[in-house]
Lab assay of single mutants.
Amino acid sequence: KRRTSFTPQALEILNAHFEKNTHPSGQEMTEIAEKLNYDREVVRVWFCNKRQALK
């Protein structure tokens, strides 16, 4: 499976959402994914990886 390359704009939006809520609901992740035109699973993994990076 290929790595997803996030655009700077997408990272800005993802980081803004992460600052508000580090554990978004499934519905929220779906909405973010649709807004950014990414697969929901990609957004889920991004949040998971971001949380791990802060440990």
Results as ranks from 00 to 15, higher is better:
1 K>V: 01
1 K>D: 07
1 K>R: 05
2 R>H: 08
2 R>M: 14
2 R>F: 11
2 R>L: 13
3 R>V: 13
3 R>E: 14
3 R>L: 14
3 R>A: 08
3 R>F: 14
3 R>W: 05
3 R>N: 15
4 T>D: 10
4 T>A: 10
4 T>H: 12
4 T>V: 09
4 T>F: 04
4 T>G: 10
4 T>W: 04
5 S>M: 08
5 S>I: 15
5 S>E: 15
5 S>Q: 15
5 S>L: 11
6 F>Q: 05
6 F>P: 14
6 F>T: 08
6 F>K: 04
7 T>K: 02
7 T>I: 02
7 T>L: 05
7 T>A: 06
7 T>W: 03
7 T>C: 10
8 P>F: 08
8 P>W: 03
9 Q>I: 11
9 Q>H: 11
10 A>G: 10
10 A>Q: 09
10 A>E: 14
10 A>F: 02
10 A>W: 01
10 A>M: 06
10 A>P: 00
11 L>D: 02
11 L>Q: 03
11 L>F: 03
11 L>H: 03
11 L>T: 05
11 L>M: 09
11 L>S: 05
12 E>G: 09
12 E>R: 09
13 I>A: 12
13 I>P: 00
13 I>G: 04
13 I>S: 05
13 I>M: 06
13 I>W: 06
13 I>K: 07
14 L>V: 02
14 L>Q: 01
14 L>S: 00
14 L>N: 00
14 L>M: 04
15 N>P: 04
15 N>S: 07
15 N>E: 12
15 N>F: 02
16 A>S: 08
16 A>E: 13
16 A>K: 11
16 A>Q: 13
17 H>V: 12
17 H>W: 13
17 H>S: 10
17 H>Q: 13
17 H>R: 09
18 F>L: 03
18 F>D: 02
18 F>H: 02
19 E>W: 08
19 E>S: 15
19 E>C: 10
19 E>D: 11
19 E>F: 05
19 E>R: 11
20 K>G: 08
20 K>R: 12
20 K>W: 04
20 K>P: 00
21 N>L: 02
21 N>C: 12
21 N>T: 07
21 N>A: 06
21 N>I: 04
21 N>G: 05
21 N>R: 05
22 T>P: 13
22 T>Q: 15
22 T>F: 06
22 T>H: 15
22 T>R: 13
22 T>I: 09
22 T>E: 09
22 T>N: 14
22 T>K: 10
23 H>T: 10
23 H>G: 06
23 H>Q: 12
23 H>V: 10
24 P>L: 03
24 P>K: 00
24 P>Y: 01
25 S>T: 13
25 S>Y: 01
25 S>M: 04
25 S>F: 03
25 S>E: 04
26 G>V: 15
26 G>D: 10
26 G>I: 12
27 Q>F: 01
27 Q>P: 12
27 Q>S: 10
27 Q>A: 11
27 Q>I: 15
28 E>Y: 09
28 E>G: 02
28 E>I: 12
28 E>N: 04
28 E>T: 10
29 M>I: 03
30 T>P: 02
30 T>E: 05
31 E>I: 02
31 E>Y: 03
31 E>M: 14
31 E>S: 15
31 E>P: 03
32 I>T: 01
32 I>E: 02
32 I>N: 01
32 I>H: 01
33 A>W: 00
33 A>H: 01
33 A>Q: 03
33 A>D: 02
34 E>N: 02
34 E>A: 13
34 E>L: 12
35 K>L: 12
35 K>Q: 09
35 K>T: 15
35 K>M: 11
36 L>S: 02
37 N>K: 11
37 N>S: 11
37 N>E: 10
37 N>V: 03
37 N>L: 05
37 N>Q: 11
38 Y>L: 13
38 Y>A: 13
38 Y>E: 14
38 Y>V: 14
38 Y>Q: 13
38 Y>R: 12
38 Y>M: 13
39 D>P: 14
39 D>T: 12
40 R>W: 12
40 R>S: 11
40 R>P: 12
40 R>F: 14
40 R>L: 14
40 R>Y: 10
41 E>F: 01
41 E>L: 02
41 E>P: 01
41 E>A: 06
41 E>R: 09
42 V>I: 09
42 V>H: 04
42 V>D: 12
42 V>S: 14
43 V>K: 00
43 V>T: 02
44 R>W: 14
45 V>N: 06
45 V>D: 15
45 V>Y: 02
45 V>I: 10
45 V>Q: 04
45 V>L: 13
46 W>T: 00
46 W>P: 01
46 W>F: 03
46 W>G: 02
46 W>H: 02
47 F>A: 01
47 F>K: 02
47 F>M: 02
48 C>E: 15
48 C>T: 06
48 C>Q: 15
48 C>R: 11
49 N>S: 11
49 N>P: 02
49 N>A: 11
49 N>C: 05
49 N>K: 13
49 N>M: 07
50 K>G: 03
50 K>E: 08
50 K>M: 07
50 K>N: 06
50 K>F: 00
51 R>C: 04
51 R>T: 05
51 R>N: 10
51 R>E: 04
51 R>D: 03
51 R>V: 07
52 Q>K: 13
52 Q>S: 07
52 Q>R: 11
52 Q>Y: 04
52 Q>G: 06
53 A>E: 09
53 A>F: 05
53 A>N: 14
54 L>D: 07
54 L>R: 09
54 L>I: 05
55 K>T: 15
55 K>L: 05
55 K>V: 04
55 K>N: 07
55 K>G: 06
55 K>Q: 03
55 K>S: 15
55 K>D: 02
55 K>A: 15
